[in-house]
Amino acid sequence: MHPVFQGLLTILIGVCGCVGYFYFSNLFLDKVLFPASGPNAGRNINRANIVRPWLFLFPALAALGLYLAYPVFETLRLSFTERLPNNQSRFVGLANYQQMMSEPKFWEALKNNMLWLLVVPAMSTAFGLLAAQLSDRVRWGNIAKSIIFMPMAISFVGAAVIWKLVYDTRPIEQEQIGVLNALYLYFGGTEPNTWLTIPFWNNFFLMAVLIWIQTGFAMVIISAALRGIPEETIEAAIVDGANPFQIFFKIKVPQIMGTIVVVWTTITIVVLKVFDIVFAMTNGQWETQVLANYMYDKMFRGIDWGVGSASAMVIMLLVTPILVWNVYNARKEMR
Protein backbone atom coordinates (compact mmCIF):
# COMPACT_ATOMS: atom_id res chain seq x y z
CA MET A 1 0.00 0.00 0.00
CA HIS A 2 1.31 3.43 -0.83
CA PRO A 3 2.48 5.24 2.32
CA VAL A 4 0.29 8.25 1.51
CA PHE A 5 -2.83 6.12 1.65
CA GLN A 6 -1.44 4.39 4.69
CA GLY A 7 -1.04 7.83 6.23
CA LEU A 8 -4.59 8.88 5.33
CA LEU A 9 -5.90 5.60 6.67
CA THR A 10 -3.96 6.13 9.89
CA ILE A 11 -5.45 9.58 10.32
CA LEU A 12 -8.90 8.13 9.72
CA ILE A 13 -8.41 5.17 12.05
CA GLY A 14 -6.64 7.31 14.63
CA VAL A 15 -9.26 10.04 14.67
CA CYS A 16 -12.25 7.71 14.47
CA GLY A 17 -10.63 5.42 17.02
CA CYS A 18 -10.09 8.26 19.47
CA VAL A 19 -13.51 9.80 19.03
CA GLY A 20 -15.16 6.39 19.06
CA TYR A 21 -13.29 5.35 22.19
CA PHE A 22 -14.30 8.47 24.10
CA TYR A 23 -17.87 8.44 22.84
CA PHE A 24 -18.65 4.78 23.39
CA SER A 25 -16.79 4.41 26.65
CA ASN A 26 -18.78 7.34 28.05
CA LEU A 27 -21.97 5.90 26.64
CA PHE A 28 -21.17 2.53 28.19
CA LEU A 29 -20.44 4.15 31.52
CA ASP A 30 -23.67 6.17 31.58
CA LYS A 31 -26.10 3.71 30.07
CA VAL A 32 -24.88 0.23 30.93
CA LEU A 33 -22.50 0.27 33.89
CA PHE A 34 -23.98 3.03 36.04
CA PRO A 35 -27.30 4.08 34.45
CA ALA A 36 -28.56 7.39 35.81
CA SER A 37 -32.04 5.96 36.33
CA GLY A 38 -33.71 3.26 38.32
CA PRO A 39 -33.40 2.72 42.06
CA ASN A 40 -29.73 3.66 42.49
CA ALA A 41 -29.64 6.66 40.17
CA GLY A 42 -27.92 8.99 42.61
CA ARG A 43 -25.27 6.51 43.63
CA ASN A 44 -24.68 5.57 40.01
CA ILE A 45 -24.14 9.16 38.93
CA ASN A 46 -21.55 9.60 41.63
CA ARG A 47 -19.79 6.40 40.71
CA ALA A 48 -19.78 7.31 37.02
CA ASN A 49 -18.20 10.63 37.90
CA ILE A 50 -15.45 8.86 39.80
CA VAL A 51 -14.62 6.63 36.86
CA ARG A 52 -15.00 9.20 34.08
CA PRO A 53 -11.77 11.16 34.55
CA TRP A 54 -9.82 7.96 34.07
CA LEU A 55 -11.71 7.27 30.84
CA PHE A 56 -10.65 10.66 29.56
CA LEU A 57 -7.08 10.17 30.76
CA PHE A 58 -6.50 6.57 29.78
CA PRO A 59 -5.14 6.95 26.20
CA ALA A 60 -2.83 9.79 27.19
CA LEU A 61 -1.55 8.02 30.28
CA ALA A 62 -0.97 4.81 28.34
CA ALA A 63 1.01 6.65 25.66
CA LEU A 64 2.99 8.71 28.18
CA GLY A 65 3.74 5.66 30.27
CA LEU A 66 4.83 3.53 27.38
CA TYR A 67 6.73 6.16 25.39
CA LEU A 68 8.34 8.30 28.09
CA ALA A 69 8.11 6.88 31.60
CA TYR A 70 8.85 3.21 30.89
CA PRO A 71 11.88 4.01 28.68
CA VAL A 72 13.52 5.94 31.52
CA PHE A 73 13.54 2.85 33.70
CA GLU A 74 14.29 0.47 30.86
CA THR A 75 17.28 2.59 29.82
CA LEU A 76 18.49 2.57 33.40
CA ARG A 77 18.22 -1.22 33.41
CA LEU A 78 19.93 -1.56 30.03
CA SER A 79 22.81 0.60 31.20
CA PHE A 80 23.66 -2.14 33.70
CA THR A 81 23.43 -4.98 31.20
CA GLU A 82 25.33 -6.30 28.25
CA ARG A 83 23.62 -7.56 25.11
CA LEU A 84 24.39 -11.13 24.19
CA PRO A 85 24.05 -12.50 20.63
CA ASN A 86 20.82 -14.51 20.93
CA ASN A 87 18.70 -11.58 22.11
CA GLN A 88 19.66 -12.29 25.71
CA SER A 89 21.19 -9.84 28.11
CA ARG A 90 23.41 -10.19 31.12
CA PHE A 91 23.80 -8.02 34.21
CA VAL A 92 27.25 -6.47 34.23
CA GLY A 93 27.00 -3.93 37.03
CA LEU A 94 28.86 -0.73 36.36
CA ALA A 95 31.00 -2.15 33.56
CA ASN A 96 29.31 0.00 30.89
CA TYR A 97 29.90 3.14 32.89
CA GLN A 98 33.51 2.15 33.48
CA GLN A 99 34.05 1.54 29.78
CA MET A 100 32.44 4.88 28.98
CA MET A 101 34.63 6.69 31.50
CA SER A 102 37.73 5.17 29.96
CA GLU A 103 36.93 6.55 26.52
CA PRO A 104 38.48 9.93 25.71
CA LYS A 105 35.62 10.62 23.27
CA PHE A 106 33.16 10.56 26.17
CA TRP A 107 35.14 13.11 28.14
CA GLU A 108 35.47 15.23 25.05
CA ALA A 109 31.67 15.06 24.60
CA LEU A 110 31.03 15.91 28.24
CA LYS A 111 33.49 18.81 28.16
CA ASN A 112 31.98 20.18 24.97
CA ASN A 113 28.46 19.81 26.35
CA MET A 114 29.48 21.85 29.39
CA LEU A 115 30.87 24.51 27.08
CA TRP A 116 27.60 24.51 25.14
CA LEU A 117 25.68 24.78 28.41
CA LEU A 118 27.67 27.84 29.42
CA VAL A 119 27.64 29.66 26.12
CA VAL A 120 24.40 28.96 24.27
CA PRO A 121 21.80 29.80 26.94
CA ALA A 122 23.77 32.88 27.98
CA MET A 123 24.21 34.23 24.46
CA SER A 124 20.67 33.40 23.33
CA THR A 125 19.17 35.05 26.39
CA ALA A 126 21.41 38.08 26.04
CA PHE A 127 20.61 38.54 22.36
CA GLY A 128 16.95 37.87 23.07
CA LEU A 129 16.91 40.51 25.78
CA LEU A 130 18.63 42.97 23.49
CA ALA A 131 16.30 42.26 20.57
CA ALA A 132 13.22 42.46 22.79
CA GLN A 133 14.26 45.76 24.34
CA LEU A 134 15.24 47.34 21.02
CA SER A 135 12.23 46.16 19.03
CA ASP A 136 9.78 47.42 21.63
CA ARG A 137 11.03 50.94 21.03
CA VAL A 138 10.70 51.31 17.27
CA ARG A 139 7.71 51.31 14.99
CA TRP A 140 9.00 48.54 12.75
CA GLY A 141 9.65 46.37 15.80
CA ASN A 142 7.16 43.71 14.79
CA ILE A 143 8.88 43.10 11.47
CA ALA A 144 12.23 42.92 13.23
CA LYS A 145 10.80 40.42 15.68
CA SER A 146 9.40 38.26 12.91
CA ILE A 147 12.77 38.05 11.23
CA ILE A 148 14.71 37.27 14.40
CA PHE A 149 12.03 34.75 15.36
CA MET A 150 12.05 33.08 11.94
CA PRO A 151 14.93 30.61 12.51
CA MET A 152 12.69 28.88 15.07
CA ALA A 153 10.78 27.41 12.14
CA ILE A 154 13.91 26.15 10.40
CA SER A 155 15.07 22.63 11.13
CA PHE A 156 18.44 22.06 12.75
CA VAL A 157 19.48 20.28 9.58
CA GLY A 158 18.36 23.18 7.41
CA ALA A 159 20.21 25.55 9.70
CA ALA A 160 23.29 23.36 9.40
CA VAL A 161 23.22 23.76 5.61
CA ILE A 162 22.65 27.49 5.94
CA TRP A 163 25.64 27.91 8.21
CA LYS A 164 27.86 25.54 6.25
CA LEU A 165 27.49 28.00 3.40
CA VAL A 166 28.55 30.79 5.75
CA TYR A 167 31.62 28.79 6.81
CA ASP A 168 32.46 27.52 3.31
CA THR A 169 36.12 27.51 2.32
CA ARG A 170 37.66 27.71 -1.15
CA PRO A 171 41.34 27.48 -2.03
CA ILE A 172 43.11 30.80 -1.68
CA GLU A 173 43.44 31.45 -5.42
CA GLN A 174 39.66 31.21 -5.91
CA GLU A 175 37.06 33.69 -4.80
CA GLN A 176 35.58 32.83 -1.40
CA ILE A 177 31.86 32.02 -1.44
CA GLY A 178 31.55 31.71 2.35
CA VAL A 179 30.80 35.02 4.03
CA LEU A 180 33.08 34.38 6.96
CA ASN A 181 36.17 33.70 4.87
CA ALA A 182 35.35 36.56 2.52
CA LEU A 183 35.17 38.95 5.48
CA TYR A 184 38.26 37.42 7.05
CA LEU A 185 40.29 37.99 3.90
CA TYR A 186 38.79 41.45 3.38
CA PHE A 187 39.90 42.52 6.84
CA GLY A 188 43.45 41.39 6.30
CA GLY A 189 43.43 37.65 6.87
CA THR A 190 46.22 35.94 4.99
CA GLU A 191 44.57 32.70 3.93
CA PRO A 192 41.07 31.20 4.17
CA ASN A 193 40.33 28.98 7.16
CA THR A 194 38.35 25.76 7.20
CA TRP A 195 36.50 26.98 10.26
CA LEU A 196 34.87 23.73 11.30
CA THR A 197 38.16 21.87 11.58
CA ILE A 198 39.94 24.18 14.03
CA PRO A 199 39.73 22.29 17.35
CA PHE A 200 38.13 24.06 20.28
CA TRP A 201 37.06 27.12 18.30
CA ASN A 202 34.94 25.03 15.94
CA ASN A 203 32.65 24.36 18.90
CA PHE A 204 31.76 28.02 18.88
CA PHE A 205 30.99 27.94 15.18
CA LEU A 206 28.54 25.13 15.88
CA MET A 207 27.08 26.94 18.87
CA ALA A 208 26.44 30.00 16.71
CA VAL A 209 23.86 27.94 14.83
CA LEU A 210 21.88 27.11 17.95
CA ILE A 211 22.19 30.65 19.32
CA TRP A 212 20.86 31.91 16.00
CA ILE A 213 17.85 29.59 16.35
CA GLN A 214 17.11 30.08 20.05
CA THR A 215 17.43 33.85 20.24
CA GLY A 216 13.98 34.26 18.69
CA PHE A 217 12.44 32.12 21.42
CA ALA A 218 14.16 34.11 24.15
CA MET A 219 13.10 37.36 22.52
CA VAL A 220 9.40 36.42 22.30
CA ILE A 221 9.15 35.38 25.93
CA ILE A 222 11.20 38.27 27.28
CA SER A 223 9.37 40.80 25.13
CA ALA A 224 6.04 39.72 26.64
CA ALA A 225 7.53 40.00 30.13
CA LEU A 226 8.92 43.48 29.42
CA ARG A 227 5.46 44.64 28.37
CA GLY A 228 4.04 43.33 31.62
CA ILE A 229 6.25 45.61 33.72
CA PRO A 230 4.12 48.21 35.51
CA GLU A 231 4.53 51.62 33.87
CA GLU A 232 4.70 53.38 37.26
CA THR A 233 8.05 51.84 38.16
CA ILE A 234 9.59 53.15 34.96
CA GLU A 235 7.96 56.56 35.26
CA ALA A 236 9.20 56.87 38.81
CA ALA A 237 12.72 56.07 37.67
CA ILE A 238 12.53 58.68 34.90
CA VAL A 239 11.31 61.29 37.37
CA ASP A 240 14.22 60.40 39.61
CA GLY A 241 16.56 61.10 36.70
CA ALA A 242 17.63 57.58 35.74
CA ASN A 243 19.23 57.30 32.31
CA PRO A 244 17.98 54.69 29.79
CA PHE A 245 20.69 52.18 30.70
CA GLN A 246 19.92 52.46 34.40
CA ILE A 247 16.23 52.01 33.66
CA PHE A 248 16.99 48.90 31.67
CA PHE A 249 19.47 47.20 33.98
CA LYS A 250 18.24 48.40 37.36
CA ILE A 251 14.47 48.65 36.86
CA LYS A 252 13.42 46.38 34.02
CA VAL A 253 15.80 43.43 34.19
CA PRO A 254 15.32 42.73 37.93
CA GLN A 255 11.56 42.70 37.41
CA ILE A 256 11.71 40.06 34.70
CA MET A 257 14.37 37.90 36.37
CA GLY A 258 11.86 35.06 36.78
CA THR A 259 11.20 35.02 33.04
CA ILE A 260 14.90 35.12 32.27
CA VAL A 261 15.42 32.05 34.43
CA VAL A 262 12.62 30.25 32.57
CA VAL A 263 14.15 31.11 29.20
CA TRP A 264 17.58 30.07 30.42
CA THR A 265 16.45 26.67 31.69
CA THR A 266 14.34 25.98 28.59
CA ILE A 267 17.30 26.64 26.31
CA THR A 268 19.51 24.55 28.62
CA ILE A 269 17.23 21.58 27.96
CA VAL A 270 17.46 22.15 24.22
CA VAL A 271 21.24 22.30 24.48
CA LEU A 272 21.44 19.04 26.40
CA LYS A 273 19.50 17.29 23.65
CA VAL A 274 21.36 18.92 20.75
CA PHE A 275 22.08 16.30 18.17
CA ASP A 276 21.15 17.28 14.62
CA ILE A 277 23.49 20.25 14.33
CA VAL A 278 26.60 18.33 15.29
CA PHE A 279 25.47 15.24 13.37
CA ALA A 280 24.98 17.21 10.16
CA MET A 281 27.92 19.61 10.36
CA THR A 282 30.89 17.71 11.78
CA ASN A 283 29.51 14.41 13.11
CA GLY A 284 31.72 14.85 16.13
CA GLN A 285 34.96 15.02 14.20
CA TRP A 286 37.65 17.58 15.00
CA GLU A 287 36.86 17.39 18.70
CA THR A 288 33.28 18.63 18.44
CA GLN A 289 31.57 15.56 19.92
CA VAL A 290 28.58 16.14 22.20
CA LEU A 291 26.75 13.68 24.44
CA ALA A 292 23.67 13.14 22.27
CA ASN A 293 25.77 12.42 19.21
CA TYR A 294 28.14 10.23 21.22
CA MET A 295 25.15 8.24 22.35
CA TYR A 296 23.84 7.88 18.80
CA ASP A 297 27.29 6.71 17.70
CA LYS A 298 27.38 4.07 20.41
CA MET A 299 23.83 2.89 19.80
CA PHE A 300 23.60 2.67 16.06
CA ARG A 301 27.14 2.62 14.72
CA GLY A 302 28.89 0.77 17.50
CA ILE A 303 25.74 -1.30 18.28
CA ASP A 304 26.73 -1.09 21.92
CA TRP A 305 23.41 -0.65 23.69
CA GLY A 306 24.95 -0.86 27.14
CA VAL A 307 27.29 2.11 26.75
CA GLY A 308 24.65 3.91 24.66
CA SER A 309 22.17 3.61 27.52
CA ALA A 310 24.79 4.65 30.03
CA SER A 311 25.46 7.86 28.10
CA ALA A 312 21.71 8.47 27.77
CA MET A 313 21.51 8.22 31.56
CA VAL A 314 24.22 10.88 31.80
CA ILE A 315 22.01 13.21 29.74
CA MET A 316 19.07 12.34 32.00
CA LEU A 317 21.18 13.08 35.07
CA LEU A 318 22.06 16.51 33.71
CA VAL A 319 18.38 17.24 32.97
CA THR A 320 17.15 16.10 36.38
CA PRO A 321 17.85 19.28 38.38
CA ILE A 322 15.78 21.29 35.90
CA LEU A 323 13.07 18.65 35.95
CA VAL A 324 12.83 18.86 39.73
CA TRP A 325 12.88 22.65 39.65
CA ASN A 326 10.09 22.77 37.04
CA VAL A 327 7.89 20.34 38.95
CA TYR A 328 8.49 22.26 42.16
CA ASN A 329 7.50 25.54 40.52
CA ALA A 330 4.48 24.10 38.79
CA ARG A 331 3.17 22.71 42.08
CA LYS A 332 3.81 25.98 43.85
CA GLU A 333 1.87 27.83 41.18
CA MET A 334 -1.08 25.48 41.38
CA ARG A 335 -1.56 25.95 45.08
Partner: peptide, 29 residues
Protein backbone atom coordinates in the same frame (compact mmCIF):
# COMPACT_ATOMS: atom_id res chain seq x y z
CA UNK B 1 -12.12 20.56 35.06
CA UNK B 2 -12.72 17.19 36.68
CA UNK B 3 -12.06 16.53 40.30
CA UNK B 4 -10.42 13.27 41.22
CA UNK B 5 -7.76 12.05 43.62
CA UNK B 6 -4.20 12.23 42.26
CA UNK B 7 -4.90 15.07 39.85
CA UNK B 8 -2.15 17.34 41.19
CA UNK B 9 0.30 14.46 41.08
CA UNK B 10 -0.55 13.71 37.46
CA UNK B 11 -0.05 17.32 36.46
CA UNK B 12 3.34 17.26 38.16
CA UNK B 13 4.22 14.09 36.26
CA UNK B 14 3.30 15.76 32.96
CA UNK B 15 5.46 18.77 33.83
CA UNK B 16 8.31 16.42 34.65
CA UNK B 17 7.94 14.45 31.43
CA UNK B 18 8.11 17.71 29.46
CA UNK B 19 11.88 17.74 29.82
CA UNK B 20 12.72 14.04 29.64
CA UNK B 21 15.21 13.76 26.77
CA UNK B 22 13.85 11.55 24.03
CA UNK B 23 17.32 10.04 23.73
CA UNK B 24 16.32 7.80 26.62
CA UNK B 25 13.39 6.42 24.71
CA UNK B 26 15.27 5.31 21.63
CA UNK B 27 16.67 1.90 22.59
CA UNK B 28 13.76 0.66 24.72
CA UNK B 29 11.18 1.67 22.13
Amino acid sequence: WMDFPGRALLIAVVVGLLVVPLQLALIPL
